[in-house]
Nucleic acid binder design. Structure first.
Lengths: 117, 117
DNA sequence: CGGAATCCCAATGGATACTG
DNA sequence: CAGTATCCATTGGGATTCCG
């Protein structure tokens, strides 16, 4: 689940569905990562990194690990040298696509000087 | 815009639409706030706070102020004593409703022990 | 190529108390 | 009721370096 134990420490203070959803995908780069995987279907690590201008290895890797642990993205690696690792959405992740597209479109409709992708 | 100046300090490193969207509504409580406003249409401050179990005054107020500055929520106050203040989505905020519902449904479909609202 | 290991830090979240 | 005012703590994001 990749989340703090304390979040459920009081069973009488459970979170609503939207808070739960955001606990899984609410980190700064997670939704951008998911949107790009939704858009390109499958990406190599460095491709993904290039699309997400500004993210560092540390952050991107942590982000992908958590999403993988939560079964939202799938990591595929052959053991070759040099390594080739791809990321794609799981079925669970694919269920987010409509919402991701909605967020993207909203941003796209209203941003002024951000780039298209 | 309620965001760090540094985010656009380099005009050649513009953000994609989804990153832009998240810069506006990506804070921990913003999407939960917006979803509840979408669901209930209009809420008093304390009603909203009750629905968002666990949020503190400081955080909720900061969150609402930013959303208000970004023209995503509308704050209505009569000047009465005791005060009565309501919050609702602006037209811009309402355009987020489909995406919010998508996120909510995803969380709802897959959470195990979070409460329904 | 696709990371891991460190270390660092500002920003955000949060606790508490108080108020017009 | 709807917030402010302080102050503290966390943590996630980031820079840098190194590696199989």
């Amino acid at each position: 689940m990749a989340k703090k134990k304390s979040e459920f420490e009081n069973p009488y203070e459970e979170k609503c569905s939207i808070v739960y959803a955001m606990s899984l995908i609410g980190a700064k780069w997670k939704i951008p990562v998911l949107w790009h995987l939704a858009h390109y279907e499958i990406l190599h690590y460095n491709e993904l990194k290039r699309h997400l201008k500004g993210v560092t290895n540390t952050v991107l890797t942590r982000c992908l690990r958590e999403l993988e642990q939560d079964s939202i993205v799938l990591r595929k690696s052959d053991g070759s040298v040099p390594p080739s690792v791809t990321y794609e959405l799981t079925d669970l992740g694919k269920e987010l696509i409509p919402a991701l597209n909605g967020l993207y479109k909203w941003g796209d409709d209203h941003k002024t000087n951000a780039s298209k992708i």
